[in-house]
Amino acid sequence: MNIIKFLDEFTSESLTQKVSSRRDVFGTFGSLGKKAALAAIPFGMAAGSGKAFAQTNGNTPIDSLNLALTLEYLEAEFYIRALDSGVLPAGRPEDVYNQISKHETAHVEFLKTNLGDAAVESPEFDFTVGGMFDPFNENGIGQETAYAQLLALAQAFEDTGVRAYKGQAPNLMGTAFLTPALQIHSVEAKHASEIRRLRAFVLGETLNDNALGWITLNNRGPGMPEATQAVYDGEENISQGGVDLVAATGFSATSVSQSFDEPMTGETATAIASLFIKTDSDN
């Protein structure tokens, strides 16, 4: 299936009726660069609105898995190119990227195998987002800045992946795909934790509350481009299952928000991924 067709189908017409505050959801991530044009895909509810449970999204399990596959294509290619770029320092950074790359490539193969003919093809990616970034140091931005961008993009991709899988889980209930999707979801969270901690180490921010392995409120963390804020919006939630956990436990909103990762709708995940996907008009 063609990726653009899929992305269009993923956000079926029924979703357009739920669009309320597209601009709010879009945030700054979506407003940057020409890639925003592709995100003329209708948007769903804001993550963390309390109605973000995917039960309401009306998509099929195959749609959910193809969204997952699309995100895995993006991650797999990103890590392969990062490792080929020569930007990553040897030692822990290269080792961490190698390990994550191995998993993301395995996830692609696993999902493709299970989806069979229903699997979408890989889109073409543009990790510069139309020239805004230069994570592979292809345009001469320099190793240091390219490395910082490699870390920032990896964090954004991993934190997005965790939220996106979580958002699709209810859509997979009653199918044989739920458990494997959960088994990938937790691996993405391990990646996110380590990338976040590696970034913190590189930045000298290991004691910063906003640069831990877990997400504090909706803080994207030190050094993260404002463009990535859409990845974190909604993570500040402190109420679970109708229980205000700050009131119930006496712990701070900081600690409570860290204790629960929030789901992201397929629409938001699609919009974020779309920023890195080439369209026909780019060619």
Binding site: F53, A54, V162, Y165, K166, A169, P170, M173, L182, H185, S186, V187, E188, A189, K190, H191, A192, S193, E194, R197, L212, G213, W214, Q240, G241, Q258, S259, F260, D261, E262, P263
Partner: peptide
Amino acid sequence: YLTIAGKIVSVEARHAAA
């Protein structure tokens, strides 16, 4: 409940990795 379990397990996974 599945979603809430998902919200917790990814935090446990972040812990495990750290």
